[in-house]
């Protein structure tokens, strides 16, 4: 399993990670080694096997649709890197 630099850059973009050149080089070789290792799963015939997404079988967890107190603006904005009154402030989205 070989990974190209273009692939690493594509994955980094999907991951929203600005990687340095050194990180790209390092992650390429490390991810190659890890992906080579996980290739061992291909030895198993799983065509007839149902996937498990959750260890405990569960139906949907429903609750009554009732109004309860929420965390409130002040607490919700407590850790905001930047805010304006009751809003989170972000850099311009549309230039």
């Amino acid at each position: 399993m070989s990974i190209t630099r273009q692939e690493i850059e594509h994955i980094a973009k999907l991951s929203r990670l600005a990687l340095s050149n050194d990180e790209k080089v390092l992650f390429t070789s490390q991810m190659e080694a890890i992906l080579k290792y996980v290739e061992t799963l291909k030895e198993l015939d799983t065509d007839a096997i149902t996937p498990t997404s959750h260890a405990v079988p569960m139906e949907n967890a429903f609750r009554p649709d009732s109004v309860t107190p929420s965390i409130g603006h002040e607490r919700a904005l407590l850790n905001a890197p930047d805010k304006n009154e009751t809003y989170f402030r972000v850099p311009p989205v549309i230039e």
Partner: peptide
């Protein structure tokens, strides 16, 4: 800009193993 802010924030905030696992 917004997307660049997210990418830079994550690059600066996460350590190497976290980045590696997010990538994988």
């Amino acid at each position: 800009g917004l997307i660049d802010m997210m990418m830079q924030s994550r690059a600066e905030g996460f350590g190497a193993e976290v980045k590696r696992r997010i990538m994988l």
